[in-house]
Design a protein around this nucleic acid. Sequence first.
DNA 1: AATGAATGAGATTTCATTCAT
DNA 2: GATGAATGAAATCTCATTCAT
Lengths: 185, 185, 185, 185
Amino acid sequence: MTGSTRGPNDPRRRERILDAALDVIAEHGAIKVTFRKIAEAAGVPLGSLTYYFDDMQHLLTDAFTRLAETVSTRYGALLEAARTRQEAGEAVVEIICGKVWGTDRDLLLSYELYAFATRNPEVRAVMRSWMQASRDSLARHFDPLTARALDALVEGFSIHNSFDPRPTDREAVAAVVRAVVDRHH
Amino acid sequence: MTGSTRGPNDPRRRERILDAALDVIAEHGAIKVTFRKIAEAAGVPLGSLTYYFDDMQHLLTDAFTRLAETVSTRYGALLEAARTRQEAGEAVVEIICGKVWGTDRDLLLSYELYAFATRNPEVRAVMRSWMQASRDSLARHFDPLTARALDALVEGFSIHNSFDPRPTDREAVAAVVRAVVDRHH
Amino acid sequence: MTGSTRGPNDPRRRERILDAALDVIAEHGAIKVTFRKIAEAAGVPLGSLTYYFDDMQHLLTDAFTRLAETVSTRYGALLEAARTRQEAGEAVVEIICGKVWGTDRDLLLSYELYAFATRNPEVRAVMRSWMQASRDSLARHFDPLTARALDALVEGFSIHNSFDPRPTDREAVAAVVRAVVDRHH
Amino acid sequence: MTGSTRGPNDPRRRERILDAALDVIAEHGAIKVTFRKIAEAAGVPLGSLTYYFDDMQHLLTDAFTRLAETVSTRYGALLEAARTRQEAGEAVVEIICGKVWGTDRDLLLSYELYAFATRNPEVRAVMRSWMQASRDSLARHFDPLTARALDALVEGFSIHNSFDPRPTDREAVAAVVRAVVDRHH
DNA sequence: AATGAATGAGATTTCATTCAT
DNA sequence: GATGAATGAAATCTCATTCAT
């Protein structure tokens, strides 16, 4: 009996439940999440959900919090790695056009997250931290307004591209980013 | 004999139900929509919901379609009204900072809309028309890429501002818009 | 405007509704009959059902009555046509093995009929007339008990054959019928 | 602590529900079965019906399967008990005229069963086993065709007698059975 | 006479949550 | 600590029937 992945003493179970919840939301939509579906997706007994989480509201809060933190971390890592303005600008383009955030799954989940956060102060706070963190990262290379503008571009282009049958390509996105970055000149 | 509340003469009932559905979503979130809440909000008997709509899925599809069309129309009107590049740029700023779209209600509904559209081809198609229409309006004054960039800015700034305790102010937004608009100079 | 098959002044509409009701029962089972399905099958407006019939109970009563009469007539015609004991015996075999009654549809409907008749004195009376009529026909060639026995054989073999992957064939049935007919010898 | 009416210890509940379902069908007809009536008859909470059975269709399938098995067992027991041709013939008469199967309740249920089985392969299979089993029992004393003929007589006489104000009496039935049994002589 | 839009009553079904073990 | 059988409350949905036209 090695450290099994289930049964009593399963330290990762809580996290697996949250990930499963996000999977279920991604697959069926928050509108159709049920305990049963989450339990099944997580491979845990039904009863353990209400054992770990007081109720669905708390479970979703934690799940969306986890999502925001995960995405924020990935997003931040790319920006932090940039050493120059040039690299920072390229990182922004990469975030928009690459698969950093632009995964269909993550984007879809972010819509659900925004909707949920609007009604949930706790999650809203996490989102704000994320927003602040990404701006701070950008602010190491750009002035505050440019940081905000780039952040807005990431958001807007990502969403529109995901619905667009002919998304704005990397070259074009880069041109817009350059214009915003060089706007004082 | 004014429009009675009963009998076969209530031509606007269908629309009233859809508006009520959006109200309920705005108030409680799509995650908590129920027929009962919608019926109450619309002031119609419960049974009439499934008389007008095959099931909840169809009702929501029609409601979100209506939302997309409404918002698109309002959005488009502002852009169409612009006679010069200058005015078009100001319209973009107005859309971001004014109450055209930025209503908390509409913004919140748009998150739910995006989430719903991701799973619903019919609604997705309406969203694409909307996106195309707003780009076409902008394209009367700007080149295609600038149109896309402005559209992305509207989306991104609106969302971020709605979550931001200290939103980017009108002056700052205008500066960014100018940079994008004048990016060739 | 020739004598159209629908619209006002449609003398056959009542019968078409009853036939449609039987079709619906045959297709979905009495357990799932609805006014809407019947109206659709009959090609008549929904409202005409309750115009012609007080309620579902009455409609079904009339439909099953019609069924019993139809089947009884067809059944009786074959027996009446027989001129000799020999022919009467052959008619019985034909009823069992041919498609006189043994249609899957009619047999299925007869189960529903029996179930319905058990609770409905009016329909039960029709069924009794039918039973009496077929015995009377048989009694022109056979003594009363033989008539009853043949009637029972028709019932029993028809039912069992319909469920039997390898039904009793015509030759075998004929042998049994002969044994019953000739039982005094 | 006897078997309590609540909590996880009610091993016979599933069967009680099925019996209650048959009771309700016998009383009101399959056409009017509802979860509520069954739950009341079984003395269980409404929610437990869909806990034990996916939906009404499954519940009825199981109930009719149970019916077919019960009746088949009782029917079979009488035939198995027969030691001689003579006794087997008497058992057949007893089945027709006695209260083995001829109960109004069981007969009525069998009409509903036949109707249901026609649409339900699972139940149809159970019915076939039953038919086969009773023929096999008879075949221990009679040739295969005689077995089929007796089986048909049981079916036919039982049904007709149940609708007949003056049913065929035991003596008469016995005479017919004898004729079939002795048909080679 | 005939219709079909409309609805209320009730059906099925779902599911978060409880709680005995 | 952990479970899953069980249930009540409420959801969705169906449909016979009514009734204005």
